[in-house]
Write a protein that binds this DNA or RNA. Structure first.
Lengths: 181, 181
DNA sequence: GAGTACATGTAAAACGTTACATGATTGC
DNA sequence: GCAATCATGTAACGTTTTACATGTACTC
């Protein structure tokens, strides 16, 4: 049986307070999107499972005629959450990267095509960077305690910047080959 | 219908010449492991599919009593390979990162626990870095054309270094909080 | 009245890993 | 003889996305 990470992601969000499935989806999209995502097809069945496991409770509320199913974490859920938080990180297996896969097969393409591939990728990185800046500006400031949200965003910034630099280096490298080494 | 990237990964490897399923698995593990991976459960069924699609042919060979099923790319396969190589890159959706997920939930932990999380992650990065160095030393040199394998490895190096730096910065940042801002 | 956001869910398909099964050859 | 490597594959299971279905409330 594999560790179901989605279950713990939901649990972690419920640690901030009661949420509906819809709320959770919104929150993940708005604040965790640079390192996490869940679809409704994952969220609703997993919330149901959380209740079955006794890790959360479900209450029905009627807010202005509209029914909302509110999930609240239980004591047991909190225990399970802390267990997960303190268990060793699983060793990171490198992600699949389609751009690198194509680049690896680069001798089947022209040098100019490979350079274009890298340039396109760099442009994608620049878009991501601007999204990160937008998120950064929306981030609040909590005095006296570490800004965890800001830290996770900083991670993305560092990585995107490193990739951008790598792209620029490779573009120059390939450029030289195009003009006869 | 989702794009089956595995199919194109196999096709790309067949562009280097005929391979068996076993060969392909070896090659991916040894040379593409920093940005790609495939299990036998993907490779063998997809090779079968490649033949069904007419993108590869299968020949049985007996090498010293041992039977080997050798897959060779067809003309159609080469066309499909080039189509894929030249189609626009799909926009990169950020990967799930369990360390960042846990860090995001950091206010439920002590500052020291969060610092430990980041330190552990940094140690994992350092292991990866040393694996990359090993791979780098095994890489051959092809004069006169761009070293695509080396370029893909450089990508990993840049990213790992950026992450390591980020970790160090965050460790210092949290350290300060521990000693009263 | 129409469109957007709120709100919940399921079913099918696709994607991917792991464990298992099988058997030959090579090197010690 | 035994272990490691070569070699091929499947079945079960788990994960994840996508498309669909349904209905309310709010704003223009």
């Amino acid at each position: 049986m594999r560790e179901n990470k989605s279950l713990y992601a939901l649990l972690g969000i419920l640690m901030f307070g009661p949420h509906t499935g819809y709320d959770i989806k919104q929150r993940i999209e708005q604040r965790l999107s640079h390192f996490w995502h869940e679809s409704y097809g994952q969220i609703y069945p997993n919330l149901k499972r959380l209740v079955e496991l006794g890790w959360a409770t479900l209450t029905d509320e009627l807010v202005s005629g509209r029914s909302r199913k509110i999930y609240t974490i239980t004591k047991l859920g909190q225990i399970k959450f802390h267990e997960w938080m303190n268990q060793p990180l699983s060793p990171p297996s490198p992600e699949k990267n389609e751009m690198l896969l194509r680049l690896y097969f680069g001798q089947n393409q022209s040098i100019e095509e490979n350079r274009q591939l890298i340039r396109n990728y760099r442009e994608q990185m620049e878009e991501i960077r601007s999204v990160f800046h937008t998120i950064q500006n929306q981030l609040g400031v909590a005095e006296g305690e570490p800004a965890y949200g800001r830290m996770t965003l900083g991670f993305g910034m560092h990585v995107v910047e490193a990739i951008t630099n790598w792209c620029l280096e490779q573009e120059i490298y390939l450029e030289k080959f195009n003009h006869g080494q």
